[in-house]
Design a protein around this nucleic acid. Structure first.
Lengths: 109, 109
DNA sequence: CTCCTTATATCCGAAGTGGATATAACCATC
DNA sequence: GATGGTTATATCCACTTCGGATATAAGGAG
């Protein structure tokens, strides 16, 4: 498999961050919710994926914290870099084409 | 990652078969085309993925061949089993939800 | 305090991937 | 009927990624 190489887990993380879910545990819950529990990122995959995305320059850690949430010293917040946004867009477009193909094949009612 | 979990390659194969692309090489070209060349299943991943799907009961080999195509003794034809259709439907629905989330996050213009 | 949930981190065996290599049938053309 | 390019399937190896277990600890409710 080629391309800008996002794994499925990587895309889930980018999508969660694009939707404003800024720290690891929130990402995990987001993925669980959006998939109705069908996809579950365990801690191993989750934090490993985040650090890979940081190393690849698609995600960066930010120092601040969510002013709307109570203080929690354990949390580490992240956001997409411009390259991360590009990668998420490209992968979203690809996925939209596949959904379209699935619809044409009668797989979506 | 949980459930009857399809890998990305596995979903691509099911999608190609649902669209009527009945043998390995045709699947490879379908994936290449639908992704504008961004995703390429090499022979290793392709044939290994097919045999895994057969072992899991999502795909089955059929003896006949495409009457519209010239005879080619090398080809091996496949089709989705009912379970394969179910899996493809479930994965398509999940993917459609993710595309929807991507759209809400402004990732699709 | 105690206990449950939230939160991050790391380790290990298992699964999956990519690309190279191999083999051979098919087809055009010279 | 030899030659060479494309189509087609199969297998191997090193590498990456995954899932789940384990560890640690802060936060919050009782």
């Amino acid at each position: 498999m080629v391309s800008i190489m996002l794994t499925a887990a990587g895309f889930h993380v980018l999508l969660a961050l694009a939707g404003g879910h800024g720290h690891g545990y929130a990402i995990m819950r987001f993925v669980d919710e959006i998939s109705d529990g069908a996809v579950r990122l365990g801690p191993g995959t989750l934090y490993r994926t985040i650090s890979r995305l940081v190393a690849d320059g698609l995600v960066e850690e930010i120092e601040g914290e969510d002013p709307a949430a109570p203080h929690d010293a354990r949390r580490r917040y992240y956001r997409l870099t411009p390259q991360g946004v590009d990668a998420a867009r490209a992968e979203s477009a690809l996925m939209a084409r596949m959904v379209e193909a699935a619809r044409e094949a009668g797989l979506i009612t």
